[in-house]
Every structure is written in structure tokens, then in C-alpha cells.
Design a protein around this nucleic acid. Structure first.
Length: 258
DNA sequence: TGGGTGACGACGC
DNA sequence: AGCGTCGCCACCC
């Protein structure tokens, strides 16, 4: 496809006024892989740019300079992002997802490696109000020593918030880095009800697991917001917890499956 | 192609 | 306690 043809199609698309024609142009450009569409949507971090195509949501970044966003998008994905002239259904799904609803949102991960896709899929399983260590993600996807690579894969998450990479934290329960800065990551977790500070304090004293007598199991301290509570005992090692007759929690899976 | 580079983690002071 | 160091592994020129 020549650059000239590309430009002609872009021009057609941006100059056309009729909504129906634009929808048609959107679909045509998308089908030939030339351009995604983007718009601004509100999120827990304020307004964000969201881009999509027929496969699903392709990108999410903080709103601001549209020029800078489209430059970034083109460099990252080697295709264009054009302002949307209609709002397809997927944008409604994005709004609901960003409002905290559990919606089944299609995401375009075609440029991810299989390893990155596995990391992102695993991050997507972490419920709101929970957090998991980077090393936990590595273990769960059967690359237990690829902990740094998990960090790199999450750093590459094309759709932060929608794939909740902010719920992956360091093993000492400090929050670790984030595309939008660790301060925002901390705020997101706090707004989901998770207080990391007391958990960091426990970790410093060597407490890694918490017994849940009411469920006869033991958890990671970040398995939801009700783990740290009166009458719950902390354990330094898995063996200590097992010795109490407790089973590993089936939600946070504190140890590798047997 | 092979060495450089990270949103990490364990260890040593 | 907090820092530096080093090993780790996937990915990128």
C-alpha cells in the first residue's frame, strides 16, 4: 500500500461529513488495517484517550495533546489513529469497564508476544480490591523465574486500567512502578479499598500469609480487603500455615498448584 | 547475533 | 532500614 493511497484514504475519511459515510469509512480503513479510531473517555485517572478497531480496544493513554497521542500510537503500532466521528458500542463497554463494571471487553493484543499476552491475561484475572506480586504472575504462567520480564510485559500493557496492571505489586508489597507513575497506582489501589501500608509493615516482619479461620484457608495478605482482620493469624512460611490444618486459598493461590 | 536493558527479587552490608 | 549488587529472562536493536 503506497503512502499516497494511505493519505488519500485518510483525507477521504477526515473530510467526509455524513455520519453513515463516516461509519463506512471507519470500517473500510479498519478492514485494510490502516487506522484505528479514538475518543476521550472519563476514567478513575481522569480523561483518557481510548483507541479501538474491529478486534477490540487497542490503546489507552492519559488524555491531553491529541497530536502527541496519535504520534505515540503510530510509532507504537505502525498504523494510524484517527478521531472517531461516531461512537460504536465498544465505547459504551469501555465506559462501563472504567466505571468499575465487570464487562467482557474485547482487547486487541495482536502485537503482543505470547509471553506478554499470558502476562496480561493473568493480570486481567486479578479482581478489584486485590493485588498480586510480580513473582506470583510469573509463577502462575509457568515462567517462575521470568519475574523481571513480567514487569516489562506489564510496562508494555497497551490498555492500562482496562487490563488492571496496577494490581500487580512487589513481593514486599511496595507498589512498584506504573505507566502513569507509582503515586497514581497507589491511589488506584487505595480507591479499590486496598491499604498497602499495614501489609508492607507485616511483610517487613516476615509475615507473608494470613490465615482465614472462617474459610479454613490461608491467603496472600492482598487477597481482597478483608484479609487483615482481628483473629487472623499471620504466617512466615507455607509450612506454618499448613501445620495449622489450613488449605491454600483457591482465589489467591498462595502456593504453586500440586 | 549477541549484548544491552528493564514496572523484579534475594542477599549483603 | 535502605541501599547496592547481582542473577534472572524476554525482548530489542
Amino acid at each position: 500500500m503506497t503512502q499516497r493511497l494511505r493519505n488519500a484514504l485518510d483525507q477521504y475519511c477526515t473530510q467526509t461529513r455524513c455520519t453513515a459515510s463516516n461509519t463506512f469509512a471507519d470500517a473500510t480503513l479498519d478492514r485494510v488495517g490502516l487506522a484505528d479510531r479514538y475518543t476521550v473517555v472519563n476514567s478513575p485517572l481522569g480523561d483518557v484517550f481510548v483507541a479501538w478497531n474491529s478486534r477490540g480496544v487497542s490503546a489507552l493513554r492519559q488524555a491531553g495533546d491529541a497530536e502527541a497521542f496519535t504520534r505515540w500510537f503510530n510509532k507504537r503500532f505502525s498504523r494510524r489513529a484517527l478521531p472517531a466521528q461516531a461512537e460504536p458500542e465498544i465505547v459504551g463497554l469501555v465506559r462501563r469497564a472504567l466505571a468499575g463494571e465487570n464487562v467482557d471487553l474485547p482487547v486487541d493484543l495482536r502485537d503482543c508476544t505470547p509471553f506478554e499476552a499470558a502476562v496480561l491475561a493473568k493480570a486481567r484475572e486479578i479482581p478489584k480490591g486485590h493485588a498480586r506480586p510480580y513473582a506470583w504472575v510469573a509463577r502462575e504462567i509457568d515462567h517462575p523465574r521470568a519475574v523481571r520480564a513480567v514487569g516489562s510485559a506489564l510496562a508494555n500493557n497497551p490498555v492500562p486500567l482496562l487490563i488492571p496492571c496496577h494490581r500487580v505489586v512487589r513481593s514486599d508489597y511496595t507498589c512498584g512502578d506504573y505507566v502513569f507513575g507509582s503515586e497514581r497506582k497507589r491511589r488506584l489501589l487505595r480507591d479499590e479499598g486496598l491499604r498497602l501500608e499495614p501489609i508492607q509493615e507485616l511483610a517487613r516482619r516476615g509475615v507473608r500469609y494470613i490465615g482465614q479461620p472462617e474459610d479454613n484457608c490461608f491467603c496472600l495478605p492482598t487477597c481482597g480487603t478483608n484479609v487483615i482482620a482481628e483473629g487472623h493469624t499471620g504466617f512466615h512460611t507455607v509450612e506454618e500455615a499448613l501445620a495449622q490444618g489450613l488449605e491454600p486459598c483457591s482465589t489467591c493461590r498462595p502456593i504453586a498448584a500440586a
